[in-house]
Simulated scan of single mutants.
Amino acid sequence: MAFSKLFSGELPELTEEIIQYLRKDFSTLYSCILVNRLWCRLAIPILWEDPFSAPTQNYHCIKIYLHFLNENSKAKFNEYEINNDLKFTNTLFNYPSFIKYLDTNKICNSIVNWIGKCNYKLEDLVYRSLFEVFIENEGNLHSLEVVLPFTVIANQSHHL
């Protein structure tokens, strides 16, 4: 009987504790979002609090974050033919508001993987746009790690 109450959402405190216990088990958390609405509402914020640290394909969150840009900011992506991917803005959650941990080096690596080719202007635009989204959606950071990759430092020195 308690098992059915757990899945139906009648024991939200216990369900929340279970979800918190699974904090580092990404594959199980992804399965939890499919159980029901309560489990989804509890697991999604955990999955999105440090999305750039996910062990595989952590760059897919970039496209979702860019959906939260205003229309003027989205228009900047026209020259890179990315704007069509940003037209649909219906998301179930305010994902940027869940961000708690940012590591600039991991973000840079994710952007490079997402773009797939060397394009410093586009990388810079995506990087700045992500931070714009995090600020505008009031992400509540617990940790910010700023690391400048050597390529950024080398590129900046060429512009001096």
Rank of each mutant, 00 (worst) to 15 (best):
M1G: 10
A2F: 06
F3A: 14
K5G: 01
F7S: 00
S8M: 13
E10R: 01
L11T: 07
L11I: 08
P12H: 02
E13C: 08
E13Y: 15
L14I: 15
L14Q: 02
L14F: 02
E16L: 02
Q20L: 14
Y21E: 03
R23L: 01
K24L: 11
D25V: 08
L29S: 08
S31W: 00
C32W: 11
I33M: 15
L34W: 04
L38C: 09
W39I: 13
C40Y: 10
R41K: 15
L42I: 08
L42Y: 07
P45L: 02
I46D: 11
W48A: 12
W48K: 04
E49Y: 12
E49S: 05
P51Q: 11
P51V: 09
F52M: 15
T56D: 10
Y59V: 01
Y59M: 01
C61E: 07
I62R: 10
K63H: 11
Y65L: 09
E71D: 15
N72S: 04
N72L: 12
S73L: 03
K74S: 02
F77Y: 02
N78C: 00
E79N: 11
E81I: 07
I82Q: 12
N83Y: 10
N84R: 11
K87L: 14
K87P: 03
F88K: 06
T89V: 12
L92E: 14
Y95M: 10
F98V: 03
I99M: 15
I99R: 12
I99G: 04
Y101Q: 07
D103C: 13
D103S: 13
N105G: 05
N105W: 09
N109A: 02
S110A: 15
N113F: 00
N113L: 09
C118A: 12
N119A: 08
Y120P: 00
L125I: 09
V126R: 13
Y127M: 11
Y127G: 03
R128S: 05
L130F: 06
L130T: 06
F131G: 07
E132V: 00
E132P: 01
I135M: 07
I135P: 00
E136H: 07
N137E: 06
E138D: 02
G139E: 02
N140F: 13
L141Y: 11
L144K: 01
L144A: 14
V146Y: 00
P149D: 12
F150H: 14
T151A: 08
I153V: 12
I153W: 13
A154L: 09
N155I: 09
Q156T: 05
H159D: 02
